[in-house]
Design a protein around this nucleic acid. Structure first.
Length: 867
DNA sequence: GCAAGGTC
C-alpha cells in the first residue's frame, strides 16, 4: 500500500480523485478521514493532516511543570546550560541553595529562569494526537510513503514532521516527495510521476523559524508579564511579528501626538446656473457649490481679501469648461489580503472575515480562502462560474449580459502563484441561504468576481472655472458615462457629483460665499485593513496569520477600537522594548530571519548555527532589560493605571479606575484609595471605556459601554444619577398568584446597586415569580401573555428598534422556536445539497448544517444569558 | 499563562 500524506483533508480528497482510476472510497482511520483508491492495481491511500502536527516546546524535563511551566527551570536536565554568558550570569537565586519546591530541585525561579530559557533545548512534541495516531496506524501497513504537503517552506516542515512520526513505526518504507502547485490532473500526475526527495534543508529552515519564535516569544512575554504581575490571565505578550506590528500602530499615534495643526481657511461660493443674476429665489435645481480655486488659504488676510472682493457680487462668468473622460479599471481578483482589506472597509474585521470565509469555503460557497494568487488559472471556467451564480436575482441580469457579450476576459493582479486560484464564488447563494454577515462577505466576493470580468467604468470629469469679480472658483463634477464594472461592484465608490451643463462665457448667479476656518488633520490611524496591507508590505506574518496577530494585540489590550489606537499599556510595552530590546520591535528581525532561512535552505548555513546566533542576540537584549526592570515595571504600572482611569473619587479625590472583580470576573469601578476608601460603582456587562467628558446632568464621570453585538452607549457611572433612573413599569398580572386566587402585579424594575433589570411580582416573597430582562433598552408593557408559559410579553426598544419578547428564560417556547429554525435551515441545506451533487455530498453536508445551527443556538443562549 | 505557523 502506498501512503500519501497531504497538509489538509481538502488536498487529500483532491489528489485521490485526480489519481484514482475509479472514484476513491472515503474511509476513516479512527476519526481521521482517508481516501482509498487504486493506481495500476496498487492500493493507495491519502490522509490529510491538520497543518503542523508537532509543536516545538522547551524540553519538558527541564521545566518545572507547575503553573504552565512558568515557575522555573529544574536542575535535573544536563541540557541546562552549565555556564551562562557573563552578561546573564548574575546570582540567580533569591532563596538559598539548594532551592526546592514541592520536592523538586530548581535551578532558577521565575524571572531568574529566563536566561536559562534563552539557552534551553527544544523538542518537538505531538500537537494533533488523533491525527498522529491515524497516521501511524496507516504507516505500519505502508510499503511506500509519498509526502505531498504544500509546496512551500512550512509544507516541507509539516511533511518532515509527519515523516518523523511515520518512521517511528515504519523506518524502512521508501519515502519520496511530490511537489505540485495546482490541483489539476496534469500537475498532480506530473508530480507523482516525477517524485523527488524531501528537502531536509528547507524543512530545517522552517524549524529554525519555529525555535526562534518560541524562544524570543516565551522569554520576552514572560519577562513583560512577570516584571509587573497583574494577575493570571493578564499576559503581556511579545513576538517577532506582533511587536513590530504594535510598533507600527504606536509610531502612527506618536506622529499624531506630535502633529501641530495649522489653521487654514476655505471659501465656498454658492452658484445657480438656473438664473443669470441673483440672488435667486428659484427652485435651486441648478444650484451648486464650488470652492475658491485657492483650495486652502494659509493666511487669514488673503482669505478675507478674497471674501471682500466677492462681497456684493451677484454674478459669475463661466471662464472655462474643461471636460475629461477617464477610465476606471475594474479591480483585480481577490486574494486573502485584498479580500480582508475590502471587507474591512465594509465593517468586517479581518479576523471575522477569515472566520466567515472559512465557513463559506467549508460549505462550498467560495473557493479556498488562503491564497496569494491574483490571477485566475486558465483551467478555471469563468463562464461556468458566472452561470452558477446567475441564479441569484441580484446578479442574474448582469451575468446574462456578461455571458452574451462574448468571450470573458478577466483582470490580472500583480501576484501570480499557482497553488490555488484567487477567491471566487463556487455556488449560488441568496440572502435567504446565509446569515447576514456571511452573505455580506459572499456578496462582496461574488460581485468582485463579476467585476473582474467587466469593462472599465468611464467617468466624465468636468471642471468649470467661474470668475466672480476677478476671484476664481473651481467647480468639479464627475458623471458616470458608462458604468462598466461599477454596475455590479459599488464598493468603495464616491458618489457622483453632477454639475449643471454650462458653457464658456455664460453668466450664472452668484449667491454669496462663505469662509470657514479649518485645521490640518494629523495622519489617520490605521484601519485593520490598512494595517494588514502594511504588514504584508513589510513581510510581517503571512496571509494566514496576520489577522490573528492583530486580534492578539486586541486581546492583550495593547490596542483598541477601529481605526486602531494603542492603549497606554501598548505604548509602554512598545517603548520599553524599543529602549532595552530594540531587536524585537523592528520588522528587520523578520527580514534577517528570512535571509538566514534562505541560507539554511541553500545549505550555506545550519539550523544550529542560526538558532544559536539568535539565542546570543536574545541574551544580549535580555541582559539589557534585566537591570532596567524597575523602570519597566513602573512604566507598565503607570500605563495600566492610565488605561483604567475614569475620573476622580468624589469621596477621597483619588483616581477612580475600571477594575475586574476577583470573585465574579465582572467589571466595576473602584477607587485607587482602596482599602482606605470603599467607593465603588457597578458596571453593566460589555466592553467599558472611559470617556473624557463628565455627565452633563450630575458631573460624575461617564463611560462608553458596548454590550455584545450592540451599538455603544454612554452612561453615567453613578446609578443614582437622574439619567440612570428608570420608572417601574407594570407589565401584567402574576399568573401564579392568579392561580392561587390572588391579584398581584408584575413590575419591571432595576436594581440600582447591581444595575440588573428584572420583572418581579409585587408579592415576590410568597410566589417567587420573577423574570430577567435585557440590561438596556426601554421596556414597554403589552397586554399579551406568552402562549407557551404565560409570562407577560414585553417590548424592548433599543437603538436597533423594538422587539417583542417573552422574558421567561426557561420558557419552553424558546426551544420550540430554535428547533423550528434549525429544521428550516436543515431542510434548505439538504435540498441544496441534493440538487448540487446527489448522495455523497448530501450526507456530508447534513451533519455540518446541524452543527452550525446547534452552535448558533448555543451562542444565542449564552448571549441571552449575558443580557 | 508564552510565539508564529499551518489548518478546522
Amino acid at each position: 500500500m502506498k501512503l500519501v500524506v497531504t497538509e489538509k483533508n481538502d488536498a487529500a480528497t483532491k489528489i485521490a480523485s485526480l489519481l484514482g482510476a475509479k472514484k476513491p472510497k472515503a474511509d476513516k482511520v479512527y476519526s481521521t478521514p482517508v481516501y482509498r483508491f487504486e493506481v495500476d492495481g496498487e492500493e493507495w491511500v491519502t490522509i490529510g493532516l491538520r497543518g503542523h502536527i508537532l509543536e516545538p516546546d522547551f524540553t519538558p524535563s527541564l521545566i518545572y511543570k507547575k503553573r504552565g511551566g512558568w515557575r522555573g527551570v529544574t536542575a535535573d536536565g544536563e541540557a541546562v546550560p552549565a555556564e551562562l554568558p557573563a552578561s546573564l550570569a548574575r546570582p540567580p537565586f533569591k532563596k538559598k541553595k539548594p532551592f526546592t519546591e514541592d520536592g523538586v530541585e530548581l535551578k532558577a525561579w521565575k524571572m531568574d529562569a529566563l536566561p536559562y530559557l534563552v539557552y534551553a533545548p527544544i523538542e518537538k512534541l505531538p500537537k494533533e494526537k488523533e491525527i498522529i495516531r491515524s497516521l501511524k496506524n496507516l504507516a505500519k501497513k505502508a510499503d511506500s510513503i509519498v509526502i505531498a504537503t504544500d509546496f512551500d517552506r512550512e509544507g516541507e516542515l509539516i511533511g518532515s514532521d509527519a515523516l518523523s512520526c511515520i518512521q517511528e513505526v515504519n523506518p524502512t518504507a521508501p519515502v519520496s516527495r511530490a511537489r505540485y502547485s495546482a490541483f489539476t490532473k496534469e500537475e498532480i500526475t506530473h508530480a507523482f510521476s516525477n517524485l523527488v526527495e524531501l528537502d531536509t534543508n528547507l524543512a530545517s529552515a522552517g524549524a529554525s523559524r519555529q525555535d526562534i519564535d518560541l524562544i524570543w516569544g516565551a522569554v520576552l512575554t514572560r519577562y513583560l508579564t512577570l516584571v509587573k504581575f497583574a494577575g493570571y490571565g493578564n499576559v503581556r505578550s511579545s513576538g517577532r511579528v506582533q511587536t513590530p506590528t504594535l510598533a507600527l500602530i504606536v509610531a502612527r499615534e506618536r506622529e499624531r501626538l506630535a502633529f501641530i495643526p495649522e489653521d487654514y481657511w476655505v471659501i465656498k461660493g454658492a452658484f445657480d446656473a438656473g438664473a443669470a443674476a441673483g440672488p435667486t429665489p428659484g427652485d435651486g435645481e441648478l444650484a451648486f457649490v464650488a470652492p475658491h480655486s485657492t483650495a486652502r488659504f494659509k493666511d487669514e488676510a488673503a482669505a478675507k481679501a478674497a471674501m471682500a472682493a466677492v462681497a456684493g457680487a451677484t454674478n459669475a462668468t463661466v471662464a472655462a469648461v474643461d471636460k475629461r473622460t477617464r477610465k476606471q479599471q475594474p479591480p483585480v481578483p481577490f486574494n486573502t489580503t485584498s479580500l480582508m482589506a475590502a471587507a474591512s472597509a465594509e465593517g468586517l474585521s479581518p479576523a471575522r472575515t477569515m472566520r466567515i470565509a472559512e465557513s463559506l469555503y467549508m460549505d462550498g460557497y467560495i473557493s479556498y480562502p488562503r491564497v496569494d494568487n491574483t490571477v485566475y488559472p486558465s483551467s478555471l471556467d469563468l463562464a461556468e462560474v458566472v452561470k452558477t451564480i446567475s441564479g441569484n436575482p441580484a446578479y442574474g441580469p448582469y451575468c446574462n449580459q456578461l455571458l452574451s457579450a462574448g468571450e470573458l476576459h478577466a483582470t490580472r493582479g500583480k501576484k501570480e502563484t499557482t497553488d490555488h486560484p484567487p477567491i471566487y464564488p463556487t455556488a449560488k447563494a441568496t440572502p435567504d441561504d446565509l446569515a447576514p454577515a456571511d452573505y455580506k462577505l459572499y456578496n462582496l466576493i461574488a460581485r468582485r468576481f463579476l467585476a473582474t470580468l467587466s469593462d472599465a467604468a468611464v467617468v466624465e470629469g468636468t471642471k468649470v472655472t467661474l470668475d466672480v469679480a476677478g476671484e476664481k472658483f473651481a467647480a468639479k463634477g464627475d458623471v458616470l458615462v458608462s458604468p462598466g464594472f461599477r454596475a455590479i461592484y459599488p464598493y468603495g465608490m464616491k458618489k457622483d457629483e453632477q454639475l449643471p451643463a454650462m458653457t464658456q462665457g455664460q453668466q450664472v448667479a452668484f449667491n454669496g460665499a462663505e469662509c470657514t476656518k479649518k485645521q490640518t488633520e494629523p495622519p489617520a490611524r490605521y484601519s485593520q485593513g490598512k494595517l494588514i496591507q502594511e504588514m504584508e508590505k513589510l513581510g510581517l506574518g503571512t496571509k494566514s496569520t496576520r489577522h490573528s496577530i492583530i486580534e492578539r494585540l486586541y486581546t492583550v489590550k495593547y490596542i483598541q477600537n477601529d481605526p486602531i489606537e494603542p492603549s497606554q499599556l501598548g505604548m509602554a510595552v512598545c517603548d520599553a522594548l524599543d529602549k532595552f530590546a530594540p531587536h524585537i520591535t523592528h520588522p528587520q528581525m523578520t527580514a534577517e530571519l528570512e535571509e538566514e532561512m534562505d541560507n539554511i535552505a541553500e545549505g550555506r548555513n545550519t539550523k544550529v548555527a542560526v538558532v544559536t546566533n539568535s539565542r546570543n542576540l536574545l541574551a544580549e537584549q535580555l541582559a539589557n532589560l534585566i537591570p532596567h526592570s524597575e523602570e519597566v515595571k513602573d512604566a507598565l504600572a503607570d500605563a495600566v493605571a492610565a488605561d483604567a482611569y475614569v475620573g476622580k473619587c468624589p469621596k477621597c479625590g483619588k483616581d477612580l479606575q475600571i477594575r475586574v472583580s476577583q470573585k465574579t470576573r465582572g467589571m466595576f469601578i473602584g477607587c485607587a484609595g482602596w482599602p482606605d476608601c470603599d467607593v465603588t460603582y457597578p458596571l453593566p456587562k460589555g466592553k467599558v471605556e472611559a470617556l473624557p467628558d463628565p455627565c452633563p446632568t450630575c458631573g460624575m464621570p461617564q463611560v462608553k459601554v458596548t454590550a455584545f453585538r450592540s451599538k455603544p452607549r454612554t452612561i453615567c457611572i453613578d446609578p443614582n444619577c437622574e439619567t440612570n433612573k428608570e420608572p417601574d413599569v407594570v407589565v401584567g398580572e402574576c399568573p401564579t398568584c392568579a392561580a392561587a386566587g390572588k391579584k398581584a402585579k408584575l413590575i419591571a424594575q432595576k436594581n440600582p446597586r447591581t444595575l440588573k433589570r428584572f420583572i418581579r411580582c409585587e408579592n415576590y416573597d410568597e410566589c417567587g415569580v420573577g423574570y430577567p430582562l435585557p440590561q438596556y433598552g426601554v421596556i414597554t408593557a403589552t397586554d399579551e401573555v406568552c402562549e407557551h408559559c404565560g409570562a407577560p410579553m414585553v417590548i424592548v426598544t433599543t437603538n436597533r428598534g423594538p422587539w417583542k419578547l417573552c422574558p421567561n428564560f426557561s420558557c419552553p417556547g424558546k426551544e420550540i422556536e430554535a428547533e423550528k429554525k434549525a429544521a428550516a435551515k436543515e431542510a434548505k441545506a439538504t435540498e441544496k445539497a441534493a440538487k448540487k451533487a446527489p448522495a455523497k455530498k448530501a450526507a456530508a453536508k447534513k451533519p455540518a448544517a446541524k452543527k452550525t445551527t446547534a452552535k448558533k443556538t448555543a451562542a444565542k443562549k449564552t448571549a441571552d444569558k449575558a443580557e
